[in-house]
Design a protein around this nucleic acid. Structure first.
Lengths: 215, 215, 215, 215
DNA sequence: CATGAATGAGCGTTCATTCAT
DNA sequence: GATGAATGAACGCTCATTCAT
């Protein structure tokens, strides 16, 4: 029983890994079930043994992405005692995550609302939103710590601020990708540098006294 | 002669309006030419009388959206002498615009880089990017005015800040849409109120002394 | 009345000329009614004033081609007193004709049997076949003259031989076009030279004593 | 393994057989993939399991036709010691082949140069041309044998003569088909008889002393 | 008469999904 | 459980033809 479950998990993992590679490369729409089957070295029909639909595969990747992101953010938060340093680590974790999991971004922020309520699908989306909510809580707690530490403006409502932080950062990530050329040409900045400036700008919105960059 | 042109414009408009509705609802990818034809109450072949391809329809919507947005932003900038009031008007114009032209967001920020260089298509995309660049300039000038007026931190590099402003705001718009339910339930805020707060938060990042809300 | 007819003929001629140019260039299938309208500088609908269908245009071109060919052959036959010289002139006329009217060849020998008996269409095809028959008669008479002159084998049944002449020559023309590259590369012959040899070979099949080339 | 391959071959064969029937009837252009699917009693999508494109189906038919024709011609050449008898057998093989494989004629001699270089397609066409070239060689050797045997005029350049033979015969086949009615009505000949006469006429063009019919 | 406008029918191709083995 | 085989339903696009003006 447990053996069987483990095996099932193994197969699901192989398929998801293959799908993730392809999604990152070509996007979810342009990746076909045939592509995934070939990359994962299973027959296409086998994919349907482990997943009910393509959508479920996408959602599973999104979910695992969110779980991974949550872990990375937790680690970043705990990585330093200095709040500023932790903030910087959190931002960097987020940026690195989107570098490595572009699907999670594109799908989570764009393609997700496509699902047309197919019972199970709803559950998949719900799971994703749940983890997403957990990340929000994690960040809200971190913000609260910043307020306690006296480095963050105390009037800021934590949950709302976290969501705005999230929204602003994801917008920046998106823009950085979409207009990388323009940013390089006109601003003379690399993607990474642009995002760093963005995170500092946001910091100055929430920090007492306008914030200042970490060492 | 002018009658004919007017009629052609009318038909193009009808088709674009129908397409825009459907794009907003289902996205550009999931919207088929058949869908558009049905919604616009033309035969599918007629669509090809007025547009060369689906891509041209998408680009036309994007372009007109951008042009409209530029106009709205210009008007907002000029609407007040007080920089803060103008800033507020600009943000509201942007929010309202995305409310009314969701395709422009999704397509301009997500689907655009899909096109693969089909001569004319390139031109369509180039037009869009040109207008987008003009908006950036408009906003950069506005930011410079804020610095001159002594209300904005003078160290901010205008172009970079404008792009970050843009990125942050579009992220907020996106998030507001995607998680409207969550925002309402957990934060007790309407979409509009959430966005207002977001724009204020960004303002405090760039304003001297942390900024303050307009009357 | 006569004025009107003349005008009608003028328009039909313009359309046919345009169509012929395009057919020669791209073939009948790949040439659209739009193409013809544009080339002829009429509106597409106007084409249907002068012709009932695309097929009728094709047939009209075929017919005029056949009429022209008939004239050229007549002229060639009458061009010399020496039978051999006339034979040579006839073959050259045919080759030149196919050079200048590729549609007539392709359509007359290949595309023609496509028509699916649409009343009027049948009539168009019948006209073509009638002229084609007249050419056969012309050539049969020429062959008879060759027999009278004692240069052609007397046992040959004229009509049958003419048809075989025709068939063989058209096959050669076709092959010359289709495999021009091969002929040039492997045989070191130009299209024209290849066809000349073909006509001489056929001559040796029908001439007394194996035939001999004209001066 | 072999079972699977055999089954695949069976399906490919069924599809090709259906396509061949339809091509013979309506030509390759007017035959749609839907037609083929219906005739072969597969779904249209299944066609794409066994062939990559319509073009591949056409090329497969052409190639197998050419291969079959080559075999038939080889057999005919080897069927008799007497050169005249072999010549007759070769002509009959060709005529019978075109009776049974009309597509090979139309496509190989007419539609072939339509393809526009799609990598694999080029290979398909190249294969066809290769076999076609092999047939030419076969016939050239046969002609050389006729010269050695002293029955064929020794001055004839073999390759050129073979190509002209080929051209003339295919022209006759085509004419025989196109004007079967006329031939029957006016000449009182069957298709087969007409072609027989044609082959004899060509023989008299190349044989020493004008040739004579086989028993 | 000439035409601008409109379209029905169709095209080759793709792909997520199903199902018998 | 794993899969080869099959397919229904679309998709973007084209074009000969019609018809009101």
């Amino acid at each position: 029983m447990s053996k069987k479950q483990a095996l099932t998990e193994f197969h699901r993992g192989s398929i998801l890994a293959a799908a993730e590679r392809l999604f990152a490369e070509k996007g979810t729409d342009k990746t076909t079930m045939d592509d995934i089957a070939r990359e994962a070295e299973y027959s296409k029909a086998t994919l349907y043994v482990y997943f009910q639909s393509k959508e479920e595969i996408i959602n599973a990747i999104l979910l695992s992405g969110m779980v991974l992101l949550k872990k990375k953010i937790q680690e970043a938060i705990e990585s330093h005692d200095d709040w500023y340093l932790s903030y910087d680590a959190v931002c960097r974790a987020i940026f690195r995550f989107y570098d490595e999991n572009p699907t999670s971004y594109d799908a989570a922020t764009v393609a997700m609302p496509l699902n047309q309520a197919s019972e199970e699908a709803q559950k998949g989306v719900a799971d994703i939103l749940r983890v997403s909510g957990e990340i929000d809580e994690e960040l809200a707690a971190f913000l609260a710590r910043g307020i306690e530490d006296g480095v963050i403006r105390s009037q800021l409502p934590p949950r709302e601020t976290v969501l705005l932080f999230w929204a602003a950062l994801s917008g920046m990530v998106h823009t950085a990708e979409l207009r990388e050329g323009y940013i390089g040409r006109t601003l003379g900045l690399s993607r990474g540098e642009f995002l760093r400036r963005g995170s500092q700008l946001f910091l100055s919105a929430i920090a007492k006294g306008g914030g200042h960059a970490p060492a």
